[in-house]
């Protein structure tokens, strides 16, 4: 069974590399956010498989924490872009007032 865990881990790691490539290449910033989000899911899987590989499946708590927390960042991104126009307008006003 060990080597199957190992192969799964390697596949997940290679997927992580692909996600990092997408994160570095862009081209839009949303591709990078997508890469972060995907990387987070892959980390959940990686930790879950590795905790079986090392024979300590009680460490699944970590994967659970990730699964719960990982998407908060994307909400922050959505809020960030939602408020961008208003912020830009405020900035323009500030520049004009100076």
């Amino acid at each position: 069974m060990e080597w199957i865990y190992f192969v799964t881990c390697i596949a997940i790691l290679i997927t992580m590399v692909l996600a990092v490539v997408r994160g570095l290449a862009g081209p839009t910033i949303f591709d990078r956010v997508l890469a972060v989000n995907m990387f987070g899911t892959k980390t959940v899987l990686f930790i879950a498989v590795i905790s079986f590989l090392t024979g300590r499946p009680d460490f699944l708590d970590l994967a659970l924490a990730y699964a719960l927390i990982n998407f908060i960042g994307v909400f922050a991104v959505l809020l960030f872009f939602q408020s961008r126009e208003v912020r830009r307008a405020a900035e323009a006003e500030r520049e004009a007032g100076k």
């Binding site: 839009t28 949303f30 989000n37 719960l68 998407f71 991104v77 959505l78 939602q82």
Partner: peptide, 30 residues
């Protein structure tokens, strides 16, 4: 352990599409 894995699955099943929705929305907004 299977219970914890089921919980992980449940939360991933909820959060991952939500994150996709939020991301697509952010992209469309900008």
């Amino acid at each position: 352990i299977p219970l914890k894995l089921a919980a992980i699955f449940l939360f991933l099943f909820l959060t991952s599409p939500t994150a996709s929705y939020a991301l697509a929305n952010a992209a469309l907004l900008s």
